[in-house]
């Protein structure tokens, strides 16, 4: 069998040796002699005498330490100081409060809501945010339309790429313009409906011509008075949402 290594000897010396190493040491004289030498060498390493401390050494340390210590605060308010039933009571109280708040909130909601709210959701509270969304969408549409008309009025009609770009934009605007016009009619907003109607004509002319030429665009510009429509769009854009007699965007347009 393999003789004991130095590490195994160290383990044996400190009583951590394996059973196998112990057995080997009993049968192998060579290892036993080596281990005896090893043991003697470690036994010789002794601590130098630790200076004796008197019985009052602890007191001496304590007196030196005492002024440096800050007393711990009594844990009257911390969680640790609470007994389990106090914690349970506090938890139950919190739960009861939360339940009461939840039920109260639900009841309040039901009381403050009118019959229409439950049926159709068309009360003033719901209408306001919806109206804002619609106005933003409509304003965006009018903005895009305004840009298109400006472009049309100042475009170099001989430039084919510019014409194609106008046509693409007109096609996109045409579909949404129809929806806005129908909605404006339903809402009884003739100013907006009329402007959108005239605008639709211009957009349709540009969008639906498969061979749009510079001459066609010139004709649209003149015949359909795009400058006048542009003016109308700008007027619509400047109107305030709750202005009386206007397109009544405050009411919004259902889309």
């Amino acid at each position: 069998m393999k003789h004991l290594s130095e590490e195994e000897q160290i383990e044996m010396y400190y009583g951590d040796g394996s059973e196998e190493a112990r057995k080997h040491l009993k049968v192998c004289q060579e290892c036993a002699a080596e281990f005896a030498k090893f043991k003697r060498s470690l036994d010789a390493i002794k601590s130098e005498d630790v200076p004796q401390r008197g019985p009052d050494y602890g007191d001496f340390v304590w007196q030196a330490l005492r002024p440096q210590l800050i007393p711990y605060e009594k844990k009257t308010t911390g969680w640790h100081g609470w007994s389990w039933w106090k914690l349970a009571t506090a938890a139950a109280a919190c739960l009861a409060l939360m339940t009461a708040a939840f039920i109260g909130g639900r009841l309040w909601e039901h009381r403050s809501a009118g019959p229409n709210d439950v049926a159709g959701g068309t009360n003033a509270g719901n209408a306001q945010p919806q109206q804002r969304v619609v106005l933003v969408v409509l304003t965006d549409h009018l903005d895009r339309t305004e840009r298109l008309l400006v472009q049309l009025n100042h475009a170099d009609l001989r430039d084919r790429s510019e014409s194609a770009q106008l046509q693409t934009e007109a096609r996109e605007l045409l579909a949404s313009n129809r929806l806005y016009r129908v909605s404006a009619n339903k809402e009884g907003d003739p100013a907006l409906a009329g402007a959108l109607d005239r605008l639709e004509g211009v957009l349709a002319e540009i969008a639906n011509d498969p061979h749009l030429t510079a001459a066609d665009l010139e004709r649209v510009r003149k015949d359909m008075n795009t400058s006048g429509i542009l003016f109308e769009v700008r007027v619509l854009l400047t109107r305030k949402p709750n202005e009386e007699g206007g397109p009544k965007p405050a009411k919004g347009v259902s889309i």
Partner: peptide
């Protein structure tokens, strides 16, 4: 704390 110091300082 003094009691702990006295007991374990040695």
């Amino acid at each position: 704390y003094g009691a702990l110091v006295r007991a374990h300082s040695a």
